[in-house]
């Protein structure tokens, strides 16, 4: 899987590159619009992660050009401008998703996977974690044939943890994923723990949840 990171802030593109490489993605980096345009036309990328504030051009123009030229890569718009209009324009121009800075790399990765599922229609939309089957399409969880009734947030939580299995997800990463769109001033709350507690209770009623690990003082991890 090939990814082009178009981001003029080198430290940021570097961190993105580290993270995505660890997910076995081949990363290429462009620091300006000109070089991005050249690379997009010369190579075939599955993903273009596009920052809008480029030094030599507006990212939206690059997006428009690329779509006009028939480039089939999936575009994810990254911006710190957080302008609602940017988001709408970006999606109108054919961007597949939009993430406002600062974003979590785990969130970026999960969005990329969602696009993959949507675009290529993966054979199976069901993820298995030990005895539990998570159906992403229908948003249901089954264990040994029994359906488990989860709330929307509980499902999102389990899915996100399963997606990043074997890695610690911090409370902040989880909070941002679950309530990222809600701007509130509750910085110290541990509502995520309440959800995890409820989720664990429902899951453990069906089978063992030893794999659902609490990393004390940090967050949670699904071991598989």
């Amino acid at each position: 899987m090939n990814v082009l990171i178009v981001e003029d802030e080198r430290s940021l593109s570097h961190e993105m590159e580290i993270y995505l490489s660890r997910q076995n993605l081949n990363c290429d980096v462009a620091f300006n619009g000109k070089s991005a345009s050249d690379k997009i036309h010369a190579n075939s990328y599955d993903f273009v992660l596009l920052d809008l504030g480029l030094p030599d051009m507006d990212g939206l123009d690059l997006l428009r050009e690329s779509k006009k030229a028939g480039i089939e890569s999936a575009f994810i718009v990254l911006t710190a401008r957080s302008e609602v209009e940017d988001k709408i324009t970006g999606l109108d121009l054919g961007a597949d998703d939009y993430i406002a800075k600062p974003f979590s790399l785990a969130e970026l990765h999960s969005r990329m996977q969602a696009i993959l599922r949507r675009k290529h229609g993966l054979k199976s939309n069901v993820m298995s974690v030990h005895d539990f089957d998570i159906d992403i399409q229908n948003r249901t969880v089954h264990c040994k044939g029994n359906s488990i009734n989860l709330t929307k947030k509980e499902f999102d939580l389990l899915h996100y943890l399963a997606l990043h299995k074997n890695r610690v997800l911090t409370r902040i990463q989880l909070t941002e994923h679950i309530w990222g769109d809600v701007l509130e001033d509750d910085y110290e709350s541990n509502y995520i723990d309440v959800h995890v507690k409820n989720l664990r209770k429902k899951l453990s009623a069906q089978s063992s949840v030893d794999w659902f690990e609490t990393v004390r003082g940090v967050g949670y991890r699904v071991n598989a």
Binding site: A80, P102, S104, V218
Partner: peptide, 21 residues
């Protein structure tokens, strides 16, 4: 301001994520 402040925050946030991982 949005751009100038959010960009460094992004960098640190992503770096922290990478270190934790």
């Amino acid at each position: 301001v949005s751009h100038e402040l959010q960009t460094p925050i992004s960098i640190i946030q992503n770096r922290l994520e990478n270190i934790i991982n």
